[in-house]
Every structure is written in C-alpha cells, then in structure tokens.
Amino acid sequence: MSVLVYTESENNKFKKAAFEVVSYAKAIADQMGTTVTAVAINADNSESLGNYGATKVLSIKDDSLATFNAKKYAGAIESAAKNEDAKVVVVSSSADSKYLAPLLAVGLEAGYASNVVEAPSSVSPFTVKRTAFTNKAFANTEITTDVKVVGLSNNSFGIVEHGISPSIEDFSPSIPDSGVSVESVDKATDKVSIADAEVVVSAGRGLKGPENWGMVEELADVLGAATACSKPVSDLGWRPHGEHVGQTGKPVASNLYIAIGISGAIQHLAGINASKVKVVVNTDPEAPFFKAADYGIVGDAFEVVPQLIEKLKAFKAQNA
C-alpha cells in the first residue's frame, strides 16, 4: 500500500507542479501512515523527488511515451498503481493531467475528485475539499471507493521540502494502444503558460485596442508572468482564444493576478478568484473588480502600467 503520484515533466525536466503534487502526496501518506511512490515518465533527475517527500520513484523510460498521449500515459500510471497496490493516486491540474485522470479513474475503478485545494480533512472516510461552481463555492467531497484518484489544483498546496533519498526503480509498464496521435504541436516555448504561472498579468477592453498590448507583455516579462485577457478581448480577436480567462475560459490559480482595464464581471471573477493576491488598475472607482481585489489603483492604465514597469525593474535590480 502506498500513495502514488504522477510527476509531470517536459523535455525530461520535472515541472514545478510535479514538486507540488509530491509534497501533497506526502501529506496524504503521513495521514495514512504510509509512503509516497512517484511515477516519472522519461524524466531525468528522479532522485530530486525525494526533496519533496517521495520514498521511491518508478522511473519509466519508453520511446512510445515520448510525446504525451492521455490513454498511454493513463495506462502506464494505472500499471504502476496496481504494481504498488496504491490506495490513492495524485495528479496535478495541468491540461494533460486533467485529460488522463478520468481514464485512469475508470481503469482503477477509482472515484475521482478534481480541483482539490487542501490535504484531506479525513482519510477515513476519505474527504477532500474541492472547488465547485467555478470558484464560487467549495464542496467537501467524500470518495467512497477503495482506490481514489485526486487531482490537485495548481498552486493550492505549495511546495514542502523533505530530505528523503529515494530508491529509484526502472519500471516497464504495460501500455495500451491509443487511437489518437499527435500530428503537430504549436506552442510558444518562450512564454509562461497560464496554468504554470505564479503571476498572471491580464488586461481587458479598457486597453482600447490590440496595439496597446506591448506594455502588458513588458509588464509580464518583468514579472516572469503569463499574459491573459477578458473574454471580449479574445472575442474581438485582439488576443488569442487561449488567453481568455474566466468562468467560460481558462481558470487561474496564480499567486498574483494583475487585472488592467477589466471591469470585474461575475463571469470573469469566478474564473480567477482562486488566485491568492489580486491587483486591479482601473479608471473607474466603481468598477466591481475593486470589491474582489486585495490592492487597487484608481487610474489610467496608460499612465500606471509604464510606471509600474519602471518601478519593478528598479526593484528587481536592487534585489538581484
């Protein structure tokens, strides 16, 4: 019996979310009086997972898993879970993990709770808190099956350090055939994605037109942030659809969310409310966003943002 955790990597390097899910799995394992086994697929540096609480790593090196495939990856993790007699399997909330988790749950005959934000309040019965109604509420959800799959919401638990030297085992899972194959990938490699970002800089219709996004990108650059936008901005074609955040767009759960020229409509707020600290810049002091934000500046984005960029550059130079 153990807690199994799937640790995602990209170009053989673990993603930050991998360290968070291991930290989280360790908290569950402690509650259950067991240990954490991590599954790593084509990743280097497996021993680094010990720093976050893994006692054992099943290292899979397989060319047929060179690019992500939900069914194959789910099959590999299922095989590891069975091998370990895992009672709980933890995954992240990345697009890939959310894709494979339902397949994995069916394969393991496990109940699945997604968007979980805390360590279980109890492991018997197994009860977790998850977001529901698009961040307008939380549900305390009991998983009643013998094996459980838990999807952890990104940035909700944080990274916790443990000094374990894990044992590394090569593992050859059985991998199912998949009827889906990737033809091409179109991905900006130099940009932080909204899902991975700790800081998100987002702008709305208050910016007047696509030509004004230079300062938004520059601000994001200074902060190492991802850029996002409100729905009308992507509907108008000012920004790509992939940047649309909110109830009907991408969810944001960053540490810092900066909203520039966004009014703060309920559908927008629902999708970004899971962010820890929210800053708003808006000319209208009555804009609803001020009720949802932690910090606010009533002012013109075209004056405030360039200044903010300068001040942050100075701050960074000082703290470098």
């Binding site: 990345s94 697009a95 890939d96 009827g179 889906v180 194959s181 990737v182 033809e183 091409s184 990938v185 179109d186 991905k187 900006a188 940009k191 932080v192 994605s193 909204i194 899902a195 991975d196 659809h241 992939g242």
Partner: peptide
Amino acid sequence: REIDGGKETVSTA
C-alpha cells in the same frame, strides 16, 4: 486541442 501554452493537432477515428 488546447494544451497549456498552445495547441496541438491530433488525428483519430
């Protein structure tokens, strides 16, 4: 399919 940070094209049946 939208992926984190971009999109991909897939073929299936």
